[in-house]
């Protein structure tokens, strides 16, 4: 069984005239160690799908299994713990605590409970090293460059050794070269640590670095490059 399995996920926002069908029956599976890029035009449902996988939104219908567990049955507390323990998020921008240093941003996730702080300290140093952040470790996040910030965000996402890394437009605030470096670093971590990863991007060059590219259009998924039916 795949690590992540979505079956016929739909998501509808609003009602009546305001009704928007953001997802209209999405099924997909992602294996551990696999990096999947999700592309599609603006408004096609990419962020909605990522939010559902990350338990930030609940689907209107459909099922979602992660490691065999049905996330739809989770209550609020379980969803928080799921996001804390099973998922690592990397958002578009400004997602670090600005007044904490790079290293403190990593250790912060240890404060949310249920973690061995000693192990987290070792892991933080390891990740800082792997992501080329040793020098920047003691700098406040708001003093870091855009590329450094996104690498710190990737490190933070890996801190609690999650099953799944969810990435939303990680290079939106970066130029092409820096963006490519960040995605490359992410890819190495995903493969090296055998994580599953879903990365939303509108940048096809970045998407090409993933193992597989899925395209979403008007709330429906299809393999990238397949003709519009």
């Amino acid at each position: 069984m795949a690590l992540l399995e979505l079956t016929d996920i739909t998501k509808t926002f609003g009602a009546g005239d305001q009704r928007v069908e953001a997802l209209r029956g999405v099924s997909m599976a992602v294996e551990a160690g696999e990096m999947v890029a999700l592309v599609g035009p603006s408004g096609s449902g990419k962020s909605t799908l990522l939010a559902i996988i990350g338990a930030l939104l609940t689907p209107t219908a459909g099922s979602m299994l992660i490691g065999g567990r049905d996330v739809a049955t989770f209550d609020a507390g379980a969803r928080t713990r799921y996001r804390r323990d099973q998922v690592g998020f990397v958002f578009q921008a400004s997602n670090l605590v600005p007044f904490l240093t790079a290293r403190e941003n990593l250790l912060l996730v240890g404060e949310f409970g249920g973690a061995d702080k000693g192990a987290l300290r070792r892991r933080a140093d390891e990740l800082l090293k792997e992501l080329g952040l040793t020098e920047a470790a003691g700098q406040a996040a708001n003093r870091l460059s855009g590329g450094q910030r996104q690498r710190v965000a990737i490190a933070r996402a890996l801190m609690r050794d999650p099953l799944l890394i969810l990435v939303d437009e990680p290079t939106a605030s970066l130029d092409t070269t820096r963006g490519a470096q960040v995605v490359e670093a992410l890819r190495e971590e995903i493969h090296g640590r055998h994580k599953a990863c879903v990365m939303v991007t509108h940048d096809l060059e970045m998407a090409a670095r993933a193992d597989r590219v899925l395209e979403i259009r008007d709330g429906l998924l299809r393999a990238h490059g397949a003709p519009v039916v």
Partner: peptide, 16 residues
């Protein structure tokens, strides 16, 4: 607000 939203998204509880 946006920072607190991010912290909640990555697993900080409202209680914390």
């Amino acid at each position: 607000v946006s920072l607190l939203g991010v912290l909640k998204a990555i697993g900080a509880s409202g209680t914390y």
